[in-house]
Design a protein around this nucleic acid. Structure first.
Lengths: 238, 238
DNA sequence: GTATGTATTAAACAAACGTATGAATAAAAC
DNA sequence: GTTTTATTCATACGTTTGTTTAATACATAC
């Protein structure tokens, strides 16, 4: 427990860490306050309830991260002028503030990342309300940016690919223990730059992939010769 | 609550549903038993404890799903003989048993999918132990299959891309509420076939994407002209 | 000094939690 | 039939939960 900060900050820091380790329902207020070295009632004094504490833990980090996302996107678009911003640059603006939150959260092994990655799969109206409030504008801006970069792709397909990208990112944030276990030390999860480069390459390829010929029909022929796809197919629905 | 099945099955069905809706720590045994219409003590009688119930809820579904995954992969490899199985077919064998678990879980809106998708981001030794036990062989088999399809890609990169694919899949399973909210009804999340086709296309493109020229160096030039990638680059590390 | 508003503390609250017990009931074996 | 085994039941146990209360300490203002 750190002792230099205020009571409020000590509660937030330890709540963030413990929520990431044990989940929300798995972390009691007593565990948080004793780890922070403050009195139990301090939580209900500085925050109204446990729900409000959860909300504050999220928005404290999410707000500056989303601000940086939008700032990076703005910079890309201003630099491009009337030209298009590449998919790769849009993906980077979306991914980097989360994968490398310098200046926002303390460095090192970041409980914030585990927590944010887990947020997507967390049940309960509480977390979902927070998410929608903080993410609505970000999602809209990046959807538009991808749409401008890929004008031939229909809007719903853009959203699906953004969805998959968020999934790959969230998984990288929250579940890096899986690849550590399965790879047996072959994959270095502490290398933030390597993670970002790999994730960006994967997501860009997926977002730029050609449209299936019949998105809503029966499944495509299961055996297609491998190799790089050639071009975007024309859509026939919507 | 269904009344036709045995007590054990009624507990498992309702536990699966409630765990998906509220999480493990957020679901009490009393909520499960009252929803199932059985006595509270039935849980500790048929299963040893809540932890064992969680384990049983998972393995009941995960075992046949993984069996089907391996069966599909076996079928692909037998059919191919000495030839290579395409990345797309391997991805399908990995993804389809989860996205369309016909014959394994009851049809309709599947709590199983939400639960399995959330499993990846769930903390606690309990879930992780279950996961590793059930998934170790599956991960090994599919890693080898991808490696055979893409011999130029180094093993750790294969694992990273499998990791991202799992992330996109898990997100599609557990967090479809996000794309429903953000798209405002534009994306049909009830169309299982459409989900599978889009996910497969995205993952195949990501897995087959060219290697970055310097995987461990500083970040690549942020502005690269858009358009489809050309070929796999030669790796220079490992 | 006294007053005033803020922050911390120990203690208690009712409610809900997972688990255990022993009696009652149903089913099966003999 | 009786005995034995498997299952269900109401009930209770000891903890732990989030929240509240009333008292105390500590500032700064007057």
């Amino acid at each position: 427990m750190r002792t230099g900060d205020s009571t409020k900050e000590r509660i937030l820091d330890n709540a963030e860490r413990l929520f990431a380790e044990r989940g929300f329902d798995g972390t009691s207020l007593r565990a948080i306050t004793s780890a922070a070295g403050v009195n139990l009632a301090a939580v209900n004094y500085h925050f109204r309830s446990k729900n409000d504490l959860i909300q504050e833990v999220f928005s404290r980090r999410l707000a500056p991260i989303n601000a940086r996302r939008l700032a990076l996107l703005d910079a890309c678009e201003n630099e491009a002028g009337n030209g298009v911003v590449s998919v790769e640059r849009v993906v980077r603006a979306f991914v980097e503030p989360l994968l490398r939150p310098e200046g926002i959260a303390p460095a090192g092994r970041l409980p914030l990342q585990t927590l944010l990655g887990r947020m997507y799969a967390e049940p309960g109206r509480n977390v979902r309300k927070i998410f929608l409030g903080e993410m609505k504008e970000v999602a809209r801006r990046f959807r538009d940016a991808f749409q401008r970069a890929l004008p031939e792709v229909p809007p719903n397909e853009i959203l699906w690919r953004l969805h998959f990208t968020i999934g790959a990112m969230a998984h990288t944030l929250a579940a890096s223990w899986i690849i550590e276990m399965l790879s047996g030390g072959l994959c270095d999860t502490s290398d933030a730059n390597g993670k970002i480069e790999r994730l960006v390459a994967f997501a860009v390829a997926g977002i730029e992939s050609p449209l299936p010929l019949r998105a809503h029909g029966r499944r495509a022929r299961p055996s297609r010769p491998p190799g790089p796809r050639r071009a975007l197919a024309k859509r026939e629905d919507l």
